[in-house]
Design a protein around this nucleic acid. Structure first.
Length: 153
DNA sequence: GCCAACGTTGGC
DNA sequence: GCCAACGTTGGC
């Protein structure tokens, strides 16, 4: 059994929600323009699991689970002049922004709200509960991931 | 709308 | 390479 890593990936549901993913089944997670978040995307491996986090919504929280199905994808929006994520300094020969393809696994019957996460975990356990953490992609340690999964079964 | 916590930019 | 100014994120 290869090691499975767990991640948390944020999206504003107004831009892209868990239901959009449920309908599409798979999507390329594009638009990440933060180097630290990108480095986490680079570390992901096929088979890893990621929590889908709805941000900038009422209430914010983890709403479901997805699986990494492809890695090392050059984010196509960086080459698209019409995209808000267009990066004129990036070239197809050496793409600056790479990402992954994710697949819908499940929507949680009950979202795990940020307020609940704050009660159960501290900032070291789950970076998203640390005040001021705005990274769109962060790692989740195994014990925390297991605990979240158990909560929803 | 507020504001804390960043990240980025650019002058030096 | 420093750091002030500025912009953005995102919970509240």
């Amino acid at each position: 059994m290869p090691n499975i890593n767990y991640w948390l990936m944020k999206s504003e549901p107004a831009a892209y929600s868990i239901h959009n993913l449920q309908q599409q089944k798979q999507t390329i997670w594009d638009g990440v323009r933060n180097y630290q978040a990108r480095n986490f995307l680079k570390q992901m491996q096929v088979g890893d699991l990621a929590f889908f986090y709805h941000s900038n919504t009422q209430p914010p929280g983890i709403v479901g689970l997805m699986k990494i199905v492809e890695t090392g994808i050059a984010d196509p929006t960086q080459f698209d002049p019409d995209s808000e994520y267009y990066d004129p300094k990036s070239t197809p020969e050496s793409p600056r922004w790479q990402t992954v393809k994710v697949e819908f696994v499940e929507e949680f019957s009950q979202p795990i709200l940020l307020s609940t996460l704050k009660e159960k975990f501290n900032g070291d356990e789950l970076l998203v509960v640390k005040k001021g953490n705005r990274l769109s992609v962060i790692p989740v340690i195994e014990s925390v991931a297991k605990s979240i999964l158990v909560t929803n079964n």
